[in-house]
Design a protein around this nucleic acid. Structure first.
Lengths: 144, 144
DNA sequence: CCTAGGCTCTGTAGTTGGTACAGGCTCAAT
DNA sequence: ATTGAGCCTGTACCAACTACAGAGCCTAGG
């Protein structure tokens, strides 16, 4: 994985895009996408125009992927990264972002639970028979 | 709202797209979109090429909107409508669709709950102070 | 009668978060 | 020398809408 490039006196391990993808489990194309939208930095290029990543990029991509797993939007990820990169990030600022995201996660859960309640109570009334009368259709057709 | 068109011997109330939008609360453009993707039927046109809806379209659009509110995808809506339109729909068939949708709603709830747990327990460790150490950032940066 | 504004029509582009090609280079191994 | 893998770019596609431009039509007010 990766290849070495002579850099004056030492040999530096360089990661190509495919290496980064394998190391992180991220889709190959997604890496380029993240670069395009500015959440991954533009890496240096080799003489043949290949992206040359290093360990710092692995860390950055893992950060992004973890935040995405926690449901942060890419906009929110950008905000988090800006705080981290700014070097002036405070726990309070990050807490603010995380809390507002938490609120939206909770709102989504509530929405889905409401849907689940309606749907499960309606389906529970189904006979499941080969008859055309169906409580689910009735609920959707209802003239309220 | 609407306008009348002389139709041989009686006058028929015709709804324009804007009327349908107001009656159902659906966005104007969404109606055209639903027509394009085939969940709303192509309505008859007036001589001036305006869409001419009637009460049946109001019912159809409300059905779609209710199904969407219950989180059915438009593909699932299409299936439901095909069953209803087919006239041979049985309660069992509809129940099948609703149940599989219910399963995916429950899966989404579980996902979000997991996210909520991780996020809230992490945020709970924040001091909220003006210090750079932050449990949220640590969790995202963690070298596992 | 004329004009302004409001409605409608069409096609097309933007949104979010990616994914997947096509067509062309480069590189290592056979 | 050639094959295959990997990389490069731009672009198109997915859901489910939303929005806008540019044109046509219709009605009410002056």
């Amino acid at each position: 994985m990766g290849f070495s490039v002579k850099n004056r006196h030492r040999s530096v391990k360089v990661l190509r895009r495919g290496d980064l993808a394998k190391l992180t489990g991220c889709n190959l194309e997604t890496i380029r996408y993240y670069e395009n939208i500015g959440v991954m930095p533009e890496p240096p290029r080799t003489s043949k125009n290949y992206r040359a990543y290093d360990e710092s990029h692995v860390g950055r991509l893992r950060f992004i992927m973890r935040a995405r797993e926690l449901g942060f939007t890419l906009d929110e990820v950008r905000d988090l990264l800006a705080l981290v990169d700014g070097g002036v990030q405070t726990c309070g600022e990050v807490q603010g972002l995380a809390n507002s995201h938490l609120a939206s996660v909770r709102a989504k859960i509530d929405d889905l639970k409401r849907i689940e309640r309606v749907l499960s109570s309606t389906v529970a009334q189904c006979t499941g028979d080969d008859v055309p009368e169906c409580p689910v259709i009735d609920a959707l057709t209802e003239v309220t």
